[in-house]
Design a protein around this nucleic acid. Structure first.
Lengths: 242, 242
DNA sequence: CGTGCCGTTGACGATATTCAAGTGCAGTGG
DNA sequence: CCACTGCACTTGAATATCGTCAACGGCACG
């Protein structure tokens, strides 16, 4: 669902065609817990998540693991990593994952199209903003705010790729994985989720998350969506790039 | 000191000349606590720190502040922000700061030079890696490890721009600012610094930090420098872009 | 000579972790 | 069909880490 990009820039049919071709060139599949790429590997291509959830993570010598980002369908892992010699982290599948490997040449072909390139820029900058927001989340927010914030973010990101409807979305990750992302223990994540449930802010059963009132959840999370830069509905790009 | 870039790619005299010109075009100065750019502003140019320390930060509604990154001399704030409509965070001076404003046109001129562009890429990717490492730092490391880790990082980054010698560097920030960066309270930062001192890992008086044994400090911080990607001493770029 | 900020210290309290045990459910194999 | 296993989730009690509140000293600045 790379139609996410179309939110940021009005792409021509040709633009979309090229994107589509590139995304189909080399499609791979993975089972949960398998790695797409590991720390120390040399990055040789881009990865575009087509289906399923993945994450970027790092494991410390003593086993502590931090999940640094979630990759949802439509997400691109690391534009321009070619420049680096070795990965400083790993990317692994959380669920079954289908992804496209995009070679450097294929990417260059895509990058020739100004609007597409700009849309990719947008995507990269948003990814960076998300990373910064996680810093704020881990540094300043309490456990309750922190969990609520992550749920808001995931919900809104999923909605942008049409994977959330009627205040509902899938949350196909375990509480341990949430804990690794939030810098909390699984036990505390559990308790915090219960607290959110008891306040009626979320309904979470199995792998389905329901948010009855997103505004209220955003308030308790001190969530401000400006970092997701959802305001780029194509318009002004046309003027810029003709 | 943009000669930092020369560490990543062998730049020609011309390359350096263009960089130098661009960095001198519009030089500005700020006093401590002034903002270079504020949340909500429209980004119109790049900022390159020439002297002094700055930081990226965000303030929550209730006043809690998180410092998301430190900008040291030679650091560039946000390549390609032009694409976004509004800043989602602020950048402020921690010390007196001298910085260069680089217009979009000036940047485009620089970006025409392949080696320079690649060096800028490198810099951006390292900045992203640093941001990710901060996520790990805040999420997984204890207060002691966390403070130690930040000091290691700052020391090594300063060393890369010739601002650290003989295990010594300036640390011109208050403990409160460190606290805002580390997600700790000033009181706890103070106690943690004392602990590091009592273990002989650091000597910190006034604004001077001394690290008698960097290896030992790195060990207690679980510090792995791979995320700084210091291994790009130009060599292979020549082959690529020659 | 005050005033304000920074660093420091102590006592106390809140938040989150640790340890441990138990439940429910899905998948496996007898 | 029914144990058996493993994993995710849940709960409780004790503990540790870190935060809060408050006060004081040093130092720079006006």
């Amino acid at each position: 669902m790379i139609h996410k990009l179309e939110r940021y820039a009005r792409l021509s049919a040709d633009d979309c065609g090229v994107l589509d071709t590139v995304a189909r060139e080399k499609v791979r599949r993975l089972r949960p817990r398998d790695d797409i790429i590991q720390e120390g590997d040399k990055p040789t291509h881009l990865n575009l998540i087509l289906q399923g959830w993945a994450c970027r993570y790092k494991v410390l010598e003593d086993g502590r693991r931090q999940i640094m980002s979630f990759f949802l369908p439509g997400d691109l892992c690391d534009l321009n990593v070619f420049v680096l010699r070795a990965m400083d982290h790993s990317v692994g599948a959380l669920t079954s994952v289908v992804y496209a490997e995009i070679s450097r040449e294929a990417f260059d072909r895509v990058a020739e199209r100004p609007r597409v390139l700009q849309a990719l820029w947008w995507d990269t900058l948003v990814a960076q903003a998300i990373q910064r927001e996680w810093t704020v989340n881990l540094g300043q927010r309490t456990a309750l705010e922190r969990v609520a914030h992550l749920l808001c973010e995931l919900f809104i990101r999923l909605r942008a790729v049409d994977l959330a409807h009627d205040g509902r979305c899938e949350l196909p990750v375990t509480q341990s994985e949430l804990a690794d992302a939030l810098g909390l223990t699984p036990v505390h994540v559990n308790r915090t989720l219960q607290e959110l449930r008891s306040q009626g802010l979320i309904v979470l059963q199995g792998k389905e998350l329901q948010i009855p009132n997103l505004g209220r959840l955003m308030d308790t999370a001190l969530f401000n969506d400006n970092y997701l830069h959802l305001d780029r509905e194509g318009g002004y790009l046309d003027a810029n790039e003709g």
